[in-house]
Amino acid sequence: MSHQSSPEPVSILLVEDNPGDVRLIEEAFKTAGFETVFHTVADGTAALEFLREQVLSADGADVDLMLLDLNLPRTSGFEVLEAIKDETAFTSLPIIVLTSSEATEDIVRSYELCANAYLTKPSDPAEFAELGRAVEAFWIDEATLPPVPS
């Protein structure tokens, strides 16, 4: 899925309950050099509802990538990963866990639940731009991803 030569924006489902982090992440991707469309939800329940509506709707928004926090209200990031792992319509969606946790058990559990990558949120707001560029370099420019199911 190289978007370098494509005018289509990259569609990202951002699952994040902290408005400050939402702003930093969105700004980081604006400076990363590719056009993005964010679908932002503040908890895991809303993320799963969004994905189900997208799959069930013929005109639903295609999602190229999910950025998922683990510490969410209502339905945690781990519960979202479990639901996605069990729902075949979602299993090809690349998921990057983007969280403040550096706990080894959180990292291991995320990968066991089929997360594609685990990134720790930078503590310095200026480092978010580098994070956006790193995600672009690998996930947008280099990785070949499966087609979005229709």
Rank of each mutant, 00 (worst) to 15 (best):
M1P: 10
V22N: 00
F128W: 13
R23W: 05
I96S: 03
P147V: 06
F128K: 07
Q4P: 00
I95M: 03
I84G: 01
S57M: 06
L14R: 01
S101Q: 12
F29G: 06
Y118H: 08
A58D: 14
V15K: 07
V10N: 04
I96C: 06
E53S: 13
G33V: 09
P146W: 06
K30Q: 12
S123L: 11
E49Y: 08
E87A: 14
G20P: 06
Q4V: 05
A143V: 02
L113S: 08
E136F: 11
G20S: 11
F29T: 02
R109H: 08
T104K: 14
A28T: 01
D59T: 13
I96N: 05
A126C: 00
Y111Q: 07
F34C: 07
Y118L: 09
S123N: 10
T88C: 10
E53Q: 15
L70K: 02
Q4C: 00
W139F: 05
T91K: 12
A126P: 00
T120W: 03
A117L: 01
T36R: 00
N71T: 08
P149L: 04
A115V: 02
M1T: 14
D69G: 07
T75V: 15
E79A: 09
R109L: 11
A143D: 01
P94V: 12
G60T: 08
V10I: 15
P94H: 14
E142N: 00
F78E: 02
F128L: 07
A143F: 01
A117H: 06
E49M: 12
L24S: 03
D124H: 12
G33A: 08
V108S: 03
E105R: 11
R52F: 07
T88G: 08
G77R: 03
F29I: 09
A115W: 06
I95R: 06
D59C: 08
Q54I: 03
P94K: 06
A115E: 01
H3C: 00
L51K: 12
E35I: 04
G60L: 04
S100E: 10
D106P: 01
E8A: 13
T88L: 11
K30Y: 06
V63F: 10
I107R: 15
H39E: 12
F128C: 04
P149M: 04
T36E: 03
K30I: 09
I107S: 04
E142T: 12
I12Q: 04
I84C: 13
L131W: 12
L13C: 05
E53I: 04
I25R: 01
A89F: 09
A137D: 12
G77H: 08
V37P: 00
S150Q: 15
F128E: 10
E136P: 00
I95W: 09
E82F: 03
A89T: 04
M1W: 10
D43M: 10
D124A: 11
D124Y: 11
Y111L: 12
P125H: 04
D124G: 07
E82T: 14
G33F: 02
E35Y: 00
F29P: 07
T104E: 15
